[in-house]
Design a protein around this nucleic acid. Structure first.
Length: 559
RNA sequence: AACCUCAUGGUGUAACGGUAGCACAACAGAUUUUGGUUCUGUUUGUCAAGGUUCGAAUCCUUGUGAGGUUGCCA
């Protein structure tokens, strides 16, 4: 068992420690600031675990704040799913849920303040002209011809913008900073743009909306956020973030700190690409179990605890790393091994007739629910003359290292008896349709035979007369390339055609019919499986969460 | 030859001028009614070159490589 996955110190927590020690702050307030324009994914989970995790560790608090400054893209539908996902991950914002749109009034007031200070002006240039005036990475920008309007004129114009007297894009409010600044974000950034658009919370109250840069830091300050943690792409925005904090009468001075976003191999994370997967039907939806979305992961059966453990193991740095998906899967197995009750299921059944077992007779055998937690006790499994075993567990002509059933060979049936294969029954095409075996009554439930015989393997089975039918979906990684969005061509070129395999004919231990949607269990020797939300008692449906470690499969691959 | 940032085994992450450690992966073995779990062991690393220092992954200089930035997106 690896170290307890409590988060280790990182450079951000070091900064917080210093700020607390120096008396700069006496408590810690963080925030998670999603834009309600899409579904959360595992990358957001990293940020959520960081921000809410710090709040828990330091006895501070973490605000949930929706960064809803662009009504064209945003919708309440996303607000709800984001809240659900955060809750599912196990975090609670208490009363501290906020919306940037709640600050529109204050933000407008501060825009007027900047105008009065001579630090903002209304620009009549269109988007194209502004772009040209900004210069580029090598050359400085040039001042807008409207840069030196009087305070009165700016005030009047901005008021008219707010009153809806202009069309979209006709005018913007810009900060008056420095058109030659080496950081492009400081070259008179746009503060407000005109958008005659209904906002999901403020309705038609506003037709001018503040930009991200003019909103985020001030929202932080209004909420007395101490440490505003964001990803690396905002690094270049920090001087502007600080400029607003310095030049506006804000009630507190938050500090922006950037860290590297989560990257996972064999997957894509950008909202745009995830949307494309959904819209072009490469997956069944946002919550397709192959998607790296929180809802997809949940449907796949990954426990929230495993996600949190994973996030605590990967660390927080400024280095743009790519994490191995194996680490995530390890976290999932670690939790599920401890928590998932065990059952038997046969995915590709082949019938076995135990010829020396009395016809018409059945008996009840016991098996442990979870060997990791014996206090859970046992379950009862019916056994009889006809059973199903896994097709993969029989080979007519086995290689040397194959320990399972083959002609003349004896194996143990888990929690039942030893059986020996006596006869292989085939149809006209040569397909094996049935195995005839004999069993040894002296080997019941783990007993060893008195003559000292040994058996090399234990295989799983299900009673053929008393079992449940189910469809089982086997998921594999969605992409075959480690970095699907690198290199030429579309990331879609690297889609794994075998990422979903459907097995319609699985046979389950009857105890499984009581499992509820969302429950994750272990199918012994196969892996962890989660009852899908569409599963009903009439039509059971299971998703494979993750397979067990399989050293046999690994050995085979090596040849 | 713009500005900002980053660089430690295969992957990720520690070490805050003083023995380069941990997790995952890989490999080998032990245990095991799951080829699971658990346990033990092994392999592999400070981007390069200079400098400061008794001592450098750590500080300084230069170079190399990678990423971000030219939305009225966030």
């Amino acid at each position: 068992m690896s170290v307890p996955p409590s988060p280790s110190k990182d450079f951000i927590r070091d900064i917080i420690d210093e700020d607390l020690a120096s008396g700069k702050h006496d408590s810690t307030v963080t925030r998670f600031p999603p834009e309600p324009n899409g579904y959360l994914h595992i990358g957001h989970a990293k940020s959520i675990c960081l921000n809410f995790g710090i709040a828990e560790e330091y006895g501070g608090r973490c605000h949930l704040r929706f960064d809803d400054t662009n009504p064209v893209k945003e919708d309440v539908e996303y607000v709800d799913s984001i809240k659900e996902d955060i809750n599912w991950l196990g975090f609670d914002w208490g009363d501290h849920i906020y919306f940037a749109s709640d600050y529109f009034e204050k933000l407008h007031e501060w825009a007027v303040y900047l105008i009065k200070e001579g630090k903002a002006y209304v620009d009549d240039q269109n988007a194209d002209e502004i772009r040209k005036g900004r210069g580029n990475l090598q050359e400085p920008g040039t001042n807008s011809p409207f840069r030196d309007r009087s305070v009165e004129e700016n005030l009047a114009l901005f008021e008219r913008m707010k009153n809806g007297e202009f069309g979209n894009g006709e005018k913007v409010l810009r900060a008056r900073i420095d058109m030659a600044h080496p950081n492009l974000n400081m070259r008179d950034p746009v503060l407000y743009r005109i958008l005659h658009e209904e906002h999901h919370r403020t309705g038609d109250k506003w037709c001018i909306y503040p930009m991200y840069d003019f909103t985020h830091g001030q929202s932080d300050a209004l909420e007395f956020i101490t440490h505003s943690l964001c990803t690396l792409e905002f690094e270049n925005h920090r001087p502007l973030y600080e400029w607003f904090i310095e030049n506006l009468p804000v009630p507190s001075t938050p500090r922006q700190i950037e860290f590297s976003r989560l990257n996972l191999n064999y997957t894509v994370m950008s909202k745009r690409k995830l949307l494309q997967l959904v819209e072009e039907n490469h997956v069944s939806g946002w919550d397709d179990p192959r998607m790296p979305t929180i809802s997809g992961i949940r449907r796949r059966g990954y426990p929230a605890k495993a996600i949190r453990n994973f996030c605590n193991t990967i660390g927080i740095t400024k280095f743009q790393s790519v994490n191995d998906i194996a680490l995530l899967e390890n976290a999932v197995r670690e939790v599920l091994n401890k928590e998932a009750p065990r059952y038997m299921a046969v995915l590709n059944p082949i019938k076995v007739v135990i010829t020396n077992y009395p016809e018409g007779e059945t008996e009840i055998l016991e098996s442990v629910i979870n060997p990791e937690d014996p206090s859970l006790g046992n379950r009862e499994i019916p056994f009889g003359r006809e059973i199903y075993i896994e097709r993969d567990d029989f080979m007519e002509d086995p290689p040397k290292k194959f320990f399972r059933l083959s002609p003349g060979v004896e194996v143990r049936l888990r929690s039942a008896y030893w059986i020996k294969c006596e006869e292989v029954v085939k149809d006209d095409t040569g397909e094996i349709i049935e195995l005839h075996c004999t069993y040894d009554p002296a080997t019941k439930s783990g007993q060893n035979p008195p003559d000292g015989r040994k058996v090399k393997a234990t295989i799983h089975w299900v009673s053929a007369t008393e079992c449940a039918e189910a469809e089982v979906r086997l998921y594999d990684r969605l992409f075959m390339e480690e970095a699907p969005d690198k290199g030429e061509g579309s990331f879609l070129d690297h889609l794994n055609p075998d990422s979903l395999e459907t097995l319609p004919n699985a046979k389950l231990e009857t105890n499984l019919s009581g499992v509820e949607a969302g429950d994750t269990v272990q199918f012994e020797r196969l892996g962890y499986f989660c009852a899908d939300k569409d599963s009903t008692s009439e039509a059971l449906l299971f998703n494979r969460t993750v397979g067990l470690r399989d050293s046999w499969a690994k050995a085979q691959k090596k040849g």
